[in-house]
Amino acid sequence: MTLISLCIQFFKTGLFSIGGGLATLPFLYEISDRFHWFSHADIADMIAISESTPGAIGINMSTYAGYTTGGIPGGILASLSLACPSVIIILIIARFLEKFRENKYVDRAFYGLRPASIAMISAAGINVAMVALFDLSAFQESHFLPDFFVWKGLILAVLIFIGQKKIKIHPVAFIAASAVIGIIFKF
């Protein structure tokens, strides 16, 4: 029974959290309050873990909640329930697009959607930069401009930027290298 309500709850989360990532949080808090499968502290921990593992927080939280309530099958089942609405809805939209991609209005909509898409991605980049490259709280404390920059991070960022242009290897190589550099230089 628990497994079924687990599936229903995470299916609901997948269906109603638009935009993903942190949009799932309100639903996770609600599930926590109603079913006590995990505590608010667990959610906070999971945010930290999500920042340090691949995958979106929604997937991570559903796996974790599923595991605590139903063991390994529970973890897998809860994540799949979370993914279900995405697959169904996008399949329907993709069919719609295949039929209407040549339509004048659909084509024009993309004229507006693409800059919005790039703007969202830029904003996501800025949000990561505000954590990785800049330190607003240290600056607000000292009002000393150099404190605003995370110098180690900025140097690494410049090196990666140049490296990506010069060396044609897979981005994953840079991700792995940054992890090692992060450990060695205590980022």
Partner: peptide
Amino acid sequence: AGIRVCVCVLI
């Protein structure tokens, strides 16, 4: 912390 720097540059 290192990976975040890299992800930021990649984005």
